[in-house]
Amino acid sequence: MLRRRWSAEAKARILEEALAPGANVSAVARTHGVSPQQVFAWRRKAIRSGEIVVQTRGSEAEAQSFAPLEVAREDSGCTSGLEIVIGDATIRVGNDVAPTLLTEAIRAVRSA
């Protein structure tokens, strides 16, 4: 198998396309005939070198934070559901809730 050499301009163009909001890195890679792993490696290298800066939500980078998790058990010792507090909103679900529904609820509360 031949190794291809990509110019700095070609890499930059592919990375710009891959970093666009909503872009699928694998689809971008296929379009240009490169493996997704290679695009991820180029991105990682560019981020580490400071050539590109990845920002989250809006114009300023935001640090990720984690909420404390407390598991409350009933007298029987098993959990019967889940309670998620996001700001002043509380989501209470049973243990049979579909993960996709829970994900949609969390996203809705966070965006409100």
Rank of each mutant, 00 (worst) to 15 (best):
W42Y: 07
A63P: 06
H32R: 06
E70N: 04
H32G: 01
R73C: 10
P21Y: 07
G87H: 01
A112E: 08
A89E: 12
S59I: 06
V34A: 03
V71P: 08
V71D: 09
Q37T: 12
K11E: 08
R4K: 15
V85N: 00
E104D: 15
G77A: 01
A41F: 07
R3A: 05
S59L: 11
I52A: 00
A27L: 12
A67N: 11
D96T: 11
E83M: 04
R73H: 14
V34G: 00
A20L: 09
Q38A: 11
H32E: 04
A20T: 07
V71F: 07
A8I: 14
A18F: 14
M1F: 10
G87C: 02
L82I: 06
T103H: 10
L2P: 15
V25N: 01
A98T: 10
R57N: 07
F40I: 12
L69T: 12
G50H: 05
N95P: 09
R3Q: 05
D75G: 15
P21T: 08
W42I: 04
V25G: 03
V39I: 01
A41R: 15
I84W: 01
E62F: 12
T56I: 07
V109E: 04
D88Q: 05
L2N: 15
P36I: 03
E60D: 10
